[in-house]
Simulated assay, not measured.
Amino acid sequence: MQNDNKIFEEIKHSPDLNPRTEFVNDTRHLLIKKANRINKVSKIKKLSYYWSVVIATVAITAWISLFGGNQYILKSYHNVMSAIPKNNEESITASNKNPSVFIYHTHTTESFTPFLENKNIDQAYDENKNITMVGAELTSELKKKNINVLHSTTDFHKILRNRDLDYSKIYDISGKEVQTVLDKNKNLKLIIDIHRDSQLKDATTIRIDGKDVASVSFVVSENSPNFKENRKIANLFHQKLEKKYPGLSRGVLMKEKSRTKNPNNQNFYNQDLFANSLLLQIGGVENTIEEENRSVELIAEVIDELLVELD
């Protein structure tokens, strides 16, 4: 059997072929017929593609107009855009080594009656299901916005019990952790001590876009040496919430100065440690975790705006 090289050599040195005219004509007609068939198939594909685009456009338009698809698109757009660093400083802010927000909970075990078998509002405290879950949700929402957050779940009540200290000393205990965090993180812009209010649901719930949302309030100590700065950041936060979601914030509550001049009897709520300190109450004792989380999503939007102004 001849190998390929020998066959190629024979073809190479063979005389020119002179096909019959009938063969050439038949071959030309066959090729033209095949070309026409291919062209026809191509036109059908283009027509199918055109109508697919038309149908898809009509369907998307109907979805946006009739089923609220525009809200989904806007939310998706904002989620994507918020995940893109705006500049080099924002990228640094998102670094694990450079938190810009610190969240903690002085009253760590504050819980919600929908979580608990015991519906007594005066006993709505739990070591596991408590306000730290709300702080964790806020941390998650802020990280989605490329904001790095340090969240503490330290149980300050447990520390009090272990040291046999009076309950009035709890801010002293949480304040030590705040100071430690400040010492280690020089670029913090905002510190938030998150609580839940003791008021009932009627006073701590608002309707937004057809859903129940936990309302919020701020507490500022007039005793704090940073009182003016503390009040300024709380008022700014309140105003931004009021502008975006009227009624979500119940305002800034002032704790009057103590009549005693003894500094040991003054309650600063740790606001003396940092100018941009907030005591933020999200919802109340009867709110559900779903209502709390809806509030957190809106709060995160405002914090994102607020941090820009704190640069």
Rank of each mutant, 00 (worst) to 15 (best):
E9P: 02
S258D: 05
N187K: 10
T106W: 03
V41M: 04
N226V: 11
P246N: 07
I131Q: 15
K34T: 12
N79A: 14
N98K: 09
K143G: 09
N148K: 09
K211P: 00
L190I: 07
E127F: 05
T180P: 01
R163L: 13
V53F: 04
A203K: 13
S95T: 05
N270E: 09
K228D: 06
A136H: 13
V24F: 09
E256W: 09
K12S: 09
N162Q: 13
L47V: 04
D311W: 00
I7E: 11
G135A: 13
E229H: 04
K169T: 14
E177F: 05
L116I: 09
T153A: 13
K119D: 11
N128P: 06
H107A: 07
M133W: 08
K119P: 10
Y171V: 04
Y77T: 13
G210P: 02
K228Q: 10
L298V: 03
T27L: 12
S42Q: 03
P99C: 10
L160C: 07
P114N: 02
E127K: 10
K169W: 13
N162R: 14
F274M: 00
L31A: 15
K158L: 14
Q179K: 10
V24N: 13
E127D: 13
Q281N: 11
L253P: 00
S258T: 03
V296F: 02
R294K: 15
L116G: 06
R20E: 13
T27Q: 06
V101P: 01
N5Y: 11
R37K: 13
D172I: 13
I208F: 06
I233H: 02
Q2P: 05
V178G: 04
N25P: 00
R250H: 08
N223E: 13
L236A: 09
P246T: 07
I282H: 07
T288P: 04
V53S: 03
D304F: 05
K232R: 15
M1D: 11
L47E: 03
G283S: 08
R207N: 14
E297P: 00
T204N: 00
L47P: 00
N146L: 15
I64A: 08
Q239H: 12
N96D: 05
R37V: 15
Y104R: 01
L116K: 12
T260Y: 08
N235S: 11
S249A: 12
